[in-house]
Each structure stands twice: as C-alpha cells, then as structure tokens.
C-alpha cells in the first residue's frame, strides 16, 4: 500500500502482533479503565520513534515504554491502591515467552477474522468481501451493487472500522471457537 510510510509498516509488522502482551502488561500496572489509554500512549511514542529500524526488540521496546509511563502515572497519582500495584512475578513470566504469545495470536487472527466478517452489517460485509477477497475496484462494486461510489466508500469504511476495532480487542478465553468449526460455518454460509 503506497500510503503506508516505513514507520507504519514497521508498526503493523513489529508492534501490533504483540498487542495482547501490551494489554496484559498495562492491565497489571494500572486500573483496567486506564489500561487501553496507557497502551495508546505507548503506541504514540512508538510510531513517532525516528530510529525505529534500529530497535532490536520492538516488543520489549514498547513493554518498557508502558512500564515507564505507568511509573510516571503512579508518581503523579494522589493515592495508588494496592490492588493495582503490579505483580512482578506474573510480569516476568509474560515477558519471558514472547514467541508463544505471538504464535498464539497469529493463529487466532485468521479464525477471528472469519468470525468478525460474519458479524459485519450485510452491505459492509459484501463491500469488504468484493474489494479485498474478490479484488474488485470500488467503481466496479458500485456498478454491481447499484450504489454510488461514495456509498461504497462509506460501507467499506464502516466495515474496516468495525474489523480494526475488534482486532485490537484481546479475544476472551471462553469465546475461543475451534478453527475447524469456524471454517465449516464459513463454508456452509457460502453455499
């Protein structure tokens, strides 16, 4: 995609795959309500990093930013609850197994993607499918659906926003559906 800078490419490839780990780290350090905000603040530092290609371990880079930001917040806070003090032991375990986390989220991605696609509003789903899976151009989609190009644009934007938002959410343990079942459901619906 021509509109992605090198730093955006790096951010997507090296930072976003570890978002579950970042979320966990943040949730251990600050109250749940602030965790997402903390991750976003760390992302902002990362995407503004001028030397991003020199960072040897992007995952630890962001984990460290999150930890430092949490320290700053705690020092500024009037009262810090013990319940929100970090559990160092748990954090070290999470830090020591990056590969397992990355592989796990990588595998879930495809299965979740199918599930998420199924949950999109019908028109947004149709547009996203035609544009990205069948590879039709926006103008062709407009003709096929009998819509204006700007309406197709709106459906695409809506679909992508929902997908992007849902993909940032860490999937809860209970909702994890086996890949094969998702795939069968997907196939079944296509017929």
């Amino acid at each position: 995609m021509t509109w992605l800078r090198d730093v955006d490419r790096w951010f997507i490839d090296e930072i976003l795959p570890h978002r579950v780990a970042f979320r966990r780290q943040a949730a251990r350090l600050v109250p749940t309500a602030e965790a997402e905000d903390l991750v976003q603040e760390a992302y902002a530092r990362a995407i503004n990093a001028s030397h991003h290609r020199e960072i040897v371990n992007p995952r630890s880079f962001v984990l460290t930013i999150i930890r430092n930001l949490a320290h700053e917040r705690h020092r500024r806070a009037t009262i810090v609850r013990f319940e929100h003090l970090a559990d160092m032991e748990a954090m070290e375990i999470a830090d020591s197994a990056p590969d397992q986390f990355a592989v796990l989220s990588g595998n879930m991605e495809l299965a979740r993607l199918i599930a998420l696609m199924e949950q999109l509003p019908p028109q947004a789903r149709a547009v996203v499918k035609m544009r990205r899976i069948e590879g039709l151009l926006p103008g062709d989609i407009a003709v096929r659906m009998g819509l204006s190009v700007s309406t197709v644009e709106k459906h695409l934007a809506k679909g992508l926003a929902i997908l992007a938002y849902a993909m940032q959410e860490a999937p809860p343990q209970e909702e994890r559906v086996p890949f094969s079942r998702l795939w069968q459901r997907h196939r079944h619906q296509r017929k």
Partner: peptide, 8 residues
C-alpha cells in the same frame, strides 16, 4: 495503521 492492518 490499525485500519490498514485490518484492510490487509
């Protein structure tokens, strides 16, 4: 970047 990731 997050939306572009979803797009890809």
């Amino acid at each position: 970047a997050q939306v572009a990731h979803a797009f890809e």
